[in-house]
């Protein structure tokens, strides 16, 4: 392991961290604008042109707000919970190829931090750790509603995690690898070779599970609307609360990348056009997250568990069996 490799990796990590922290900020702006237009409002308009500087205003507010740690909380756990959410979201990004290889000043850059050959397993595992953030935050908060929210979070986690794993198993069997780069190369032949055509069921299942994974609206159960307060985040303020937000939005971007690469061909053959196509697909998935939030109400926790265990899991298992039979003959 030479020093050049270490330096290159550190530069990649810093770039990904900066880009996606900024994107998480822009994500909140997009979300407010998209929701506003869907509800026939204007959204943020006052700060800067079209309200663009609203992000900066929000950032200043979050950073300069007093950091309150309420009495009676379990201090260290309360403080580390938001860090877990944000850190694991970015750790998961280590195995995602964001762009095709490109040459910069005669030096070939692989825009992936670590091409380990178990990429998908690693991403799913690390994203699963991210749920410890809301869970620990809720349990350490010394607040009944936070605790109930944490309990709901654990129940949701145990339900959707099965569907995520099982739905990805069928595409993995077809490709015969767990690395996202292999997934991309498998579909490099163009639109006709995308896995979505041969595995539409797995795609829909994973898409539904992605909403539960990121805790977005139809399954936004860790914060319950009719309790009026914000679930596990009730006792948090300032940047500690902001870290939960950064984690959530970064997770949305990363899971969009994963979906685009596994099912929709990724960056294809690696040309500039392919790179832009990947970003376009990611943008669509991100927009869909916002669209769903405007269009759908939340489901109840028992409905989500019913859906995951009694509907999605049997379909996923059937899908695997059928894929196996088709691959055998």
């Amino acid at each position: 392991m030479d020093t050049a490799f270490i330096i290159e990796t550190i530069i990649k990590i810093v770039v990904i961290l900066l880009v996606f922290s900024a994107l998480a900020g822009f994500g909140t702006y997009f979300e407010r604008k998209v929701l506003a237009f869907m509800q026939r409002r204007l959204g943020p308009m006052h700060v800067g042109p079209y309200g663009l500087l609203q992000i900066a205003a929000d950032g200043v507010k979050l950073f300069t707000k007093e950091d309150i740690v309420p009495a009676g909380v379990v201090g260290p756990i309360f403080k580390i919970a938001p860090v877990i959410t944000a850190a694991t979201a970015f750790m998961a990004a280590a195995a995602i190829p964001f762009l095709p290889e490109f040459t910069l000043f005669g030096y070939t850059v692989h825009p992936i931090v670590a091409d380990i050959n178990v990429g998908i397993l690693y991403i799913l595992g690390v994203m699963a750790i991210g749920l410890y953030g809301p869970l620990l935050g809720g349990m350490a908060s010394n607040n009944k509603y936070s605790l109930i929210s944490a309990a709901r979070g654990a129940a949701v986690f145990i339900s959707y995690e099965v569907v995520t794993g099982l739905s990805l198993l069928a595409p993995m069997m077809m490709v015969g690898s767990l690395s996202l780069i292999d997934f991309n190369n498998y579909q490099a032949g163009g639109i006709g070779e995308w896995i979505i055509w041969s595995q539409p069921v797995a795609f829909i299942l994973f898409w539904i599970a992605a909403f539960a994974e990121t805790g977005r609206t139809p399954f936004h159960l860790i914060a319950n609307d009719h309790e009026i307060i914000d679930g596990f985040g009730t006792e948090y303020s300032g940047m500690r609360w902001g870290l939960f937000f950064i984690g959530e939005y970064a997770n949305m971007f990363f899971i969009s990348f994963v979906m685009a690469i596994i099912f929709l061909g990724g960056f294809g053959d690696g040309t500039v056009l392919g790179a832009f196509a990947l970003l376009g697909k990611v943008a669509f998935f991100f927009f869909f997250f916002l669209w769903t939030r405007a269009a759908w109400p939340d489901v109840r926790p028992d409905q989500l568990m019913w859906l995951c265990w009694k509907v999605l899991m049997p379909i996923a298992v059937l899908n695997i069996v059928i894929t196996g039979i088709v691959m055998m003959f």
Binding site: V74, G125, A128, I129, L135, A151, G165
Partner: peptide
């Protein structure tokens, strides 16, 4: 990767028991 996935889920179940039996604060 399997170590991460398996033990995240397993310890999560332990948390659920912790919530049921103790006042964790």
């Amino acid at each position: 990767a399997v170590q991460i996935i398996v033990y995240t889920g397993a310890v999560m179940a332990l948390y659920a028991f912790g919530m049921m039996f103790f006042d964790t604060t």
